[in-house]
Design a binder for these strands. Structure first.
Lengths: 141, 141
DNA sequence: GTAATTGCAAATACTTTGCCACGTA
DNA sequence: TACGTGGCAAAGTATTTGCAATTAC
């Protein structure tokens, strides 16, 4: 784990966000989860639900996304997922289509080369990618 | 283009779907588009809007997904995207975060090896993946 | 004839915004 | 003090379902 709560708060301060209780609890929850979470899921988390409103979490997540501190992901659900961006660490995910479990993949991401190729061939800028594997986990099989 | 409308209809019949006007028009639209489309976008298509209701398109898309004829994709929008599955052809996409343009990527997909590795290491079955590149296209830059 | 399919309308689910009170800088 | 932030409630957008009429087989 190359990031802790204090460092995250500093990055937030650097982006002009204020040091509020809600922000701290939200970042702590995302950090502990170590995988993407939906707004609804975050809201149900013990600490967050007692500390702040759904709209607050929603707006914080979007501010954090603008600041480049969290990333918004699709992941095939109706609800949007959000995950912390850890500097110099790219994450892909393995998702069970049965129970919905989401696990980060340990293996190094194999598409950086293709990303470079696309950048030069198409002229797209600020490229990034999202890679997810879907399947049935052993428990659900 | 390795698939035509007749072949698609045959695959549908093979899965027990009935040969209806709505099905034919929907498949034709997806085939012509050659990229993922949202329900709303499909609905706006000239031919489809005059031929059938939103709920019909919705239900057809889901039956087609169950039959393995279309695939449901995330693609970062609030609305779900659907694309035809062409046998023996895997597609990844390049998406402009500015204007929302979606283009299929021509390059061969570089993650099949990792997919195999995940299969054996984790015991997940029916593995498939989704890979999207996001960036700013030259026009939007 | 029978069961799948369709259209219309109503119900959900999740997201997004308005407004005023509040807390941080 | 000033302005970003928070809570509550209402509005917006996309999805999903119920049911009676219709159509394919």
């Amino acid at each position: 784990m190359s990031t802790d709560l204090g460092e995250l708060m500093n990055r937030c301060r650097g982006s002009g966000l204020r040091r509020t209780k809600a922000l701290e609890v939200l970042l702590g929850t995302l950090l502990k989860a170590d995988r993407p979470m939906t707004l609804a899921r975050l809201q149900k988390s013990r600490t967050l639900s007692s500390q702040c409103d759904k709209a607050t979490i929603y707006r914080l997540l979007h501010r954090l996304a603008d600041a480049g501190i969290v990333r918004r992901l699709g992941l095939h659900e109706r609800a949007a997922y959000f995950a912390l961006i850890i500097p110099d660490q790219h994450r892909d995910y393995l998702i069970c289509t049965g129970c919905g479990t989401i696990d980060p993949i340990e293996a190094p991401c194999p598409v950086h080369h293709l990303e470079d190729e696309i950048r030069t061939k198409t002229g797209y800028q600020n490229l990034y990618h999202e890679l997810e594997f879907f399947g049935t986990c052993p428990k659900c099989a």
